[in-house]
Design a protein around this nucleic acid. Sequence first.
DNA 1: GATGATTTGTACGTATGTATA
DNA 2: ATATACATACGTACAAATCAT
Lengths: 222, 222
Amino acid sequence: MASSRPKPKPAHRELHSTMIASQLENEIVSGRLKAGSKLDEQSLTQRFGVSRTPIREALHVLVARSLAERVPYRGVLVVDITRDRIEQMFEAMGEIEALCGRFAAERMTIGERGELEELHRRMNTMAADGDSEAYEAANTEFHGRIFASTHNEDLIELANNLRLKLAPFRRSQLRQAERMARSSEEHEAIVSALLDRDPKRAEKALRRHLVSAAREVLARMP
Amino acid sequence: MASSRPKPKPAHRELHSTMIASQLENEIVSGRLKAGSKLDEQSLTQRFGVSRTPIREALHVLVARSLAERVPYRGVLVVDITRDRIEQMFEAMGEIEALCGRFAAERMTIGERGELEELHRRMNTMAADGDSEAYEAANTEFHGRIFASTHNEDLIELANNLRLKLAPFRRSQLRQAERMARSSEEHEAIVSALLDRDPKRAEKALRRHLVSAAREVLARMP
DNA sequence: GATGATTTGTACGTATGTATA
DNA sequence: ATATACATACGTACAAATCAT
């Protein structure tokens, strides 16, 4: 891309730290960086060809996202993500989603309900067409909208953060038509409960939805 | 302040960034730094007599804790903490504590139950003695133990984070004997439900406890 | 137990993009 | 519209505390 441009000065606004953070995140989650590996600033500066400053920021992010931990005077180490840990994450996410569903059922505006229903309909089409990429993006929006409908900033933030934390493990999970169809069915129950303003049903439907997602992810694990 | 230093010996291991972060946190929460104030690195370096690096780190922390927000090319601004925002925080915390209580009631080990009961008894004494400092510390431990008894790392982390986020607003709230006594009464109901392994009662008792705490904090607000 | 390597926090300079006067 | 101030990200250098040999 940027090769024969007469401007040899690379735009500094490249957010190296962010890019490095997601790069490392990928490698940790994919297993290429094994648990216990030392992420020492020195090597990383050489590997990414940048100075320590952006590396430090990236490591801060990884630690904040619990993908690495800093041991005093030992360095930053890749955390050990066991099957049990993933189960716990999904369990927590299930309860948070259920909580959000309960609140949303009571507080959604008529506009929010209409928009969610429409999004759900569009997702049905995507599932039928097998457009997994669009479905994945829409799925994130679907859950985000439910969070938003709680009208509680802290719940929204908390739910989004946890979802983000889980994202790496869920990656490409919806790539299969079969899973998309099942997801869409489960969404049907969720939407139905929300439109009916039924907190209990919404809660249960979302909890089940997450159990289902967890099963899918865990099935692909060692 | 830091002007005529001939050779400002940088006393290193002092964790400047952390200290600066909590100092600023105090000022934001206490209202000495008003909403919208610009936290520009330049002025802060002079005020704290350090370079921009630790200031940067401190600002990252404040932004992460939602006490400030970074507006591109505008700087870091102190967020506006309205009464409504505090209500939302307590509402969210109430649901999270209730959730933890429900899980804990089912999963607490017999050892954990015994220790919680003992802590509760010690807290009764502290309340009777009016030892508010000890009570405050013990109270944090009390709730932390309930979180821990969920045996779900993510719930524990999430609950502790939210509690930390609320801490500034709750500060010194238990300083009054009256509030301590009421707190202890409410803890009684919580402990009772947990010892009986009654998830529903634990859930409700914790939710009520938070409503009570919120009322106390909000009563002192403009 | 002294020495050197490592980790970590900090100081300061610089380049570049954005906003504002 | 141009110039100036400013916010931001990165680079480099150093000091100090700890760990390992």
